[in-house]
Simulated assay, not measured.
Amino acid sequence: MKTQPVIAVLFPGDMGTQIAKALIDHNFKVITASEGRSAKTLENIQKSGITDTHYLQDTIEQADVVLSLTSPEGSFKMAERIISCLKATSNRPLYVDLNSNTPALASSIEDLFSAVDVPFVNGAVMGASKDIPDHAVLVVSGIYRHLFINLFAPVFKIKDAGEKTEAASAYKLLFSMVNKGMNALFFETMTAAAHFGILDELNESLQEFLPGTYQDLIKTTPTYPQHIVRRIDEMKGLAEMLESENLPNIIASGTAQTFERVLDSGIFENENPAGVVETLQNFKKLSNKK
């Protein structure tokens, strides 16, 4: 690699933009391809100091490292697009997928890049975009992870999940089961509390006797009205991973089912709660549906 490697960020949404800014602050050149991207992404490119190559092919030909930041649903298709670009160039950048994929999906993407002699690192971001770079943690795994760690340790907080490619995916999913399982527990509790007409009373008691738990829920619970579909997909992916390894998966499966019931109830529709209490107040709507 060159002394100052060129980093491609695909693509600068909220998370990608914050990662790009942190890299630029450490004197990395960051590039991306604007072709076909949304107006919001174009605005992010212009305001963050990212160099726009306009076309994906040009981006891949210039990059020393490619950071994929799309979504778990779009990560395989993104990898296929990159493979098509690589067939038209001799450049072989390090490819880092930070999309929090399932272990099976991460392995499938690795197979694509191994076939064209491109080093692959599997990864996930622990934390929100606003927490980059000081508080969020980038978890990485695979035999080439040290290329990523050595290059970016001065910029980000990084967790080395080991040599097994799927490890970063498992790490993210298992960690997320703790806070998502906690939210599912509270959602199921409040469903029953609303049924019996004691939601406010029970909520007050939970705050009084479990203040630490309530504090833990502050960051996560209010995000569910906007992101519950993604949470369902994550927990289903976790359940599938555990089942495939013949491991217990009752809580993961139940968490996904609880979130699905809440989604289907419609109580979070068009809601943007400011905190935990406000989020849980939505469960009162269930008692009105009897």
Rank of each mutant, 00 (worst) to 15 (best):
234 E>S: 11
263 L>R: 10
184 A>V: 01
171 Y>E: 09
194 A>Y: 05
257 Q>F: 02
211 P>F: 01
255 T>I: 02
197 G>M: 05
215 Q>W: 08
156 F>V: 04
202 L>A: 15
162 G>N: 01
243 E>T: 04
207 Q>H: 14
179 N>G: 03
232 I>M: 05
165 T>R: 02
213 T>P: 09
160 D>F: 02
164 K>L: 11
251 I>E: 08
159 K>N: 13
233 D>S: 13
180 K>W: 03
182 M>H: 14
156 F>Q: 01
261 R>L: 11
234 E>D: 15
214 Y>C: 15
234 E>Q: 14
201 E>Y: 10
202 L>S: 12
231 R>N: 08
185 L>P: 05
224 Y>K: 07
190 M>L: 08
264 D>G: 00
253 S>L: 00
195 H>T: 15
163 E>S: 11
201 E>G: 03
215 Q>M: 11
186 F>L: 13
230 R>T: 03
197 G>S: 03
178 V>G: 03
161 A>S: 04
200 D>H: 07
257 Q>P: 05
176 S>N: 15
217 L>P: 00
212 G>V: 07
232 I>K: 06
199 L>F: 01
217 L>I: 08
183 N>G: 11
235 M>G: 06
153 A>P: 04
261 R>V: 07
242 L>P: 08
246 N>C: 09
152 F>Q: 06
221 T>W: 05
238 L>K: 08
225 P>M: 02
165 T>S: 03
170 A>G: 06
183 N>Y: 08
222 P>T: 04
238 L>D: 02
223 T>K: 00
162 G>Q: 07
240 E>Q: 14
154 P>S: 12
251 I>T: 10
228 I>P: 07
260 E>V: 12
233 D>V: 10
236 K>W: 01
217 L>M: 15
202 L>I: 13
221 T>E: 11
234 E>W: 10
234 E>F: 10
189 T>Q: 09
256 A>W: 03
160 D>L: 01
174 L>E: 05
226 Q>Y: 04
207 Q>W: 14
250 I>P: 01
161 A>I: 01
197 G>E: 06
197 G>P: 05
